[in-house]
Design a protein around this nucleic acid. Structure first.
Lengths: 203, 203, 203, 203
DNA sequence: TATGAATGAGTCTTCATTCAT
DNA sequence: CATGAATGAAGACTCATTCAT
């Protein structure tokens, strides 16, 4: 195993430990000492890989973003069928994606919070902005495709629809995470049927 | 002014000061000293009214919940027109309500975060659960009303639709707060048109 | 005892404790915890009176400057006799002054050092500069007086003489402090005799 | 190049790097890592040549002492002329010597400080003591020579004069270093004229 | 021999909370 | 009741030193 490999493995070990602890107890309630213990390294070792607690937090964010969205994007790249079917697939995919990384949802809340008061506000905002922009573009692209194919009415605003839909997916995941008896997959299914019905071109 | 009144006025002064500071800098980045200064009282005085910083945080949450939703409920009680119109009115009302208290939105994020890691997790969760249940019940009631009147299709699931719609409102407010160039009112208008169209009974 | 008095007494207690510890172990080898213990207060209490360790260091410097030089100045104000006698008196006075505060000499070394590498470099330099300027002015004033009275030759440079003399006093004190068998008072006496002899007007 | 030579060259490289850094930032504000970087070696390598940071500090002191005084002594060995001329030459020489190694003056201050609080106090004191003793002996020897030659009065105390003169040289160098507009060479010239005049045998 | 990753003791500093006035 | 001085636990971070390679 090369030096670079060993180094980046330890780096990831630290990031993962931090992710677990931040998810469990929140950023402010987690101490560097706890993260070091969780990662099985000395306190000082953390600072060989990140320059501060804030930096570690942001590194966790980047790590999560890359790993989770990377996978999601792979799944979405192979969409096929009508625009309606593609949109349904996306909805299902997003929710499943989130469910599969349930343990990190609390972490996402922490990141959201960080956008309101952290020193890192701007760095977080930028990444979130970027993520959402990309996602909205994907959805609005499908809606435009549907309009062009004559599948959807031409008087709907693709941007507005995309923004609302993307937000709704998130909100459903949130409710799911919040309330164990909530069935996000089914709710999304039903809701999307109605929305797609509402977008359908007459006749 | 009675003793009790004087006491409860000072209590509210403290809660308000705490709300302002927590909204501005976040729970963990705000010190009791700052809140005392903002409220114009001594540090020790805070502890005459709340038992701890956590307790103060939760008090702020209760205060916000009561005050903001109280007003919202007043506005919604006087709904009239068809179910569709009522739903539109609710959407507009919720968004306007939030816009009018923009300064507290960051605070809501803090509360959300608290549900993930705070000692107070359960108390926060209970109140949020209750709030959402109430809100969903209002919306699903309107959908049922629409179905009974023959305005909406009878094969739609009122609970699922209500859950999704409530989520959508939240999501739009969030995007509005997050992105200054976003027009939540207009987006909601367009999206609701599509959703209502999708729920419409045929013919 | 008034509040202000109590406060400033505790402030001085902390400064004195810090002075003792810094003198004994040096700035960098003394921890805030030690100073707090020496002063008989809690660690946090220190920060009620100074804003940082650096600030405490500088406060000690100011306190020493005011107290020691204030006394010295009082003694020097009542000089009488010929210019030569006055200069002798000053020499004796400075050395006695230093000897009487032997315990703080190590502290003065610390302050000197601080002028080379501390964050506080400029603040220290300013005060030192001011102190020396004042002292040199006193001595050069006496030399000018001697020249005008015809006691000293008119071709000597009062500023240069004053600078050298003031420095020599310090250097003698340093040797005294450094080497216990050194007799600064006597050495100064002899040296001043020679210097005054050298300044004497012929005839 | 032999093994021993290579080793001692690397040793000196480290000492020089440490000297530069200590002079620039002070002992406590310089880290071993910085010194290693400045020397262009690994952190661990330092410990192949010195046993601790303190030891390195003292090594720098010894290196400076040997090198600078060695050169000074060479210059002084070839003194000629009357005792007065020799004393003048010494003064000029000392001040020029210091000016030529201005960058290390801050380091000397560090060493002085170390005599007050370091673990190494005694080792430093010994070397300083030795240096001063040697220097005083040189000067008092010249004064005795002057007395014997009838150049100086016989009632002056050579030891006391030497101690004071050595102190004066130091003090002038210090003022020069401290205050850029100070002219140590000229001041020394003037002051020495007066002192020599004061020592002159009558007639 | 040379290296630099790993370490944990030790530091300054903050701040919620208490309590004497 | 109101206050704010006092406190010490807790936390982020630094760095001299070690040691496996």
């Amino acid at each position: 195993m090369s030096y670079r490999t060993a180094r980046s493995e330890k780096h990831e070990k630290i990031i993962r430990a931090a992710a677990r602890m931040f998810a469990q107890k929140g950023f402010f309630n987690t101490s560097i000492a706890e993260i070091a213990a969780e990662a099985g390294v000395g306190k000082g070792t953390i600072y060989e890989y990140v320059s501060s607690k804030d930096d570690l937090f942001f590194s966790v964010f980047e790590w999560i973003s890359e790993n989770s969205w990377a996978q999601a994007r792979i799944g979405l790249s192979a969409l096929s069928g009508t625009a309606s079917e593609k949109i349904r697939t996306i909805g299902r995919s997003v929710i499943e994606q989130w469910n599969s990384m349930e343990e990190y949802y609390a972490l996402m809340m922490e990141f959201w919070c960080a956008t309101t008061s952290s020193q890192l506000r701007d760095r977080f905002k930028d990444v979130f902005d970027h993520m959402y922009k990309e996602f909205r573009a994907l959805v609005s692209g499908l809606i435009i495709e549907g309009i062009e194919r004559g599948e959807f009415r031409s008087d709907i605003d693709p941007e507005a629809m995309a923004a609302a839909l993307v937000g709704t997916f998130d909100a459903l995941v949130l409710q799911d995470w919040f309330n164990e008896s909530f069935d996000a997959v089914n709710t999304a299914e039903q809701f999307l049927s109605v929305v797609i019905q509402g977008m359908k071109a007459p006749g």
